[in-house]
């Protein structure tokens, strides 16, 4: 663990990313305190105002403060990212563990299902389900989670395949430990590192999917602010209000970027093959 931390610290980009991740987290958590305005306050006298002193990032078509809406929007993006990934990780770990541990036909069927799931244009399916079920933040989290567990399952399966033949597992079996105990107590703990990395990277892609859905009007519904639905307003007012397009998009870009940087940094730090190499 110590060695891992030392390696991670040496990667300046990843550390910067980590600091940014924390900063974004606090910005969202403290949104009610740091927002200059109430995100839903309509001000008909200041419609579509460009960035200025009172509204640092301008106002939208109803005179609402864009900065405040973006701060509240970050809560949506982050909670969708984390909960969707949480769901995907739990499903992926369980399915991957079962597949890798039991092997044989269980494994074959599960791998087939994963192949099938990977061949479906997932964004189409997400879009269809959200349109039918109705766009609420919970539905979005669940459906993103349900359609993105395949990568984790493959990772965990691969770990299980190699770990289940190792001596400590064979020893546990010889001592009469139950399958459940071996899976959860002995193998799972040793296979968590790559899962953690893929979860961090997964947050980034879930945020991207959520913002795309909101942009298409099938995500978080106004008046609740989200980065995606502010961008929809940006598209509608593209000829007159550049700030509605530029800032929320930049927020998505930076958030996804820093999660990716941290994920890659963790991956490199966890990979023993890269230890001692220049980095």
């Amino acid at each position: 663990m110590n060695l891992f931390w030392q390696r991670f610290k040496r990667n300046r980009l990843a550390v910067t990313g980590g600091i940014m991740v924390l900063a974004l987290f606090f910005a969202g958590a403290l949104a009610p305190v740091v927002s200059p305005f109430n995100p839903n306050d309509i001000d008909r006298k200041h419609i579509l105002e460009p960035p200025g002193i009172s509204h640092p990032l301008g106002t939208d078509d109803l005179g609402r403060d864009v900065l405040s809406r973006m701060l509240y929007g970050s809560r949506i993006s982050l909670s969708v990212g984390f909960i969707a990934v949480g769901i995907a990780t739990v499903i992926g770990v369980i399915i991957g563990a079962v597949s890798g541990y039991y092997g044989r036909w269980t494994d074959r069927i599960i791998m087939r299902v994963i192949d099938i799931m990977l061949s479906i244009p997932t964004f189409f399916l997400i879009l269809a389900v959200i349109a039918f079920v109705g766009p609420s933040i919970w539905n979005i989290m669940i459906i993103i989670g349900l359609t993105s567990w395949m990568g984790v399952a493959r990772l965990v399966r691969a770990e299980f395949l190699s770990l289940k033949e190792r001596e400590f597992v064979l020893a546990a079996k010889a001592l009469g430990a139950s399958n459940m105990r071996i899976i959860f107590k002995h193998i799972m703990i040793n296979s968590m590192a790559p899962v953690f990395v893929s979860a961090v990277l997964g947050v980034a892609s879930a945020i991207l999917v959520e913002s795309a859905l909101s942009f298409l009007g099938l995500g978080v519904q106004p008046p609740t602010p989200s980065w995606g639905n502010i961008l929809t307003l940006g598209k509608d007012n593209i000829e007159i209000a550049w700030w509605l397009s530029v800032f929320p998009g930049l927020a998505i870009l930076i958030t996804v970027l820093v999660y990716n940087l941290v994920g890659e940094g963790l991956r490199d730090a966890l990979d023993p093959r890269l230890w001692g190499s220049k980095g």
């Binding site: 991207l208 795309a212 593209i238 397009s245 530029v246 870009l253 990716n260």
Partner: peptide, 22 residues
């Protein structure tokens, strides 16, 4: 490349539309 990974394609579209289209 890192920026490309993180770029929401619809945002890139909006930016290019603003720049080259408008």
């Amino acid at each position: 490349v890192f920026i490309g990974f993180a770029m929401p394609s619809f945002w890139l579209a909006l930016l290019l539309m603003m720049l080259f289209g408008i």
